[in-house]
Computed example of a mutant assay.
Amino acid sequence: MQVLLETERLILRQFTEADVDNLFELDSDPEVVRWTTNLGQSTPYSVVKMEVLPDIFQDYQKYDNYGYWAVIEKTSQVFIGWFLFKPIVDASYFNPQFVNADDIELGYRLKKAAWGKGYATEGSKALIKKAFSEGVERVVAVAFAANLASIRVMEKAGLKLQTKVIYEENNQEAVIYVIDKSGYEKAYLQSSLTVK
Rank of each mutant, 00 (worst) to 15 (best):
G107F: 04
Y119E: 01
Q190L: 14
V175L: 03
V99M: 15
A126F: 04
R13E: 11
T194A: 13
V78E: 15
F94R: 09
Q77A: 14
S46D: 15
Q172G: 02
Q58P: 00
K160T: 12
L110W: 02
S150W: 03
W82C: 08
A145H: 09
F98N: 06
Q61W: 08
V47D: 10
A149L: 11
K129V: 00
L26I: 08
Y119W: 06
V139Y: 05
N171P: 00
A145P: 00
D180G: 04
I11L: 13
S28T: 08
L110H: 06
I88E: 07
Q162M: 10
V71E: 05
R109Q: 03
L26A: 11
E122M: 12
K112M: 01
F98I: 04
D29G: 11
E137P: 00
V47R: 13
P96Q: 11
S192L: 14
T43Y: 06
I128W: 10
G123T: 05
D180H: 01
W115Y: 11
D102W: 06
K125T: 05
G81S: 07
D102C: 05
A187C: 13
Y68F: 14
S46M: 03
D27W: 11
E134Q: 15
L12H: 09
P44L: 09
S182V: 13
E31W: 02
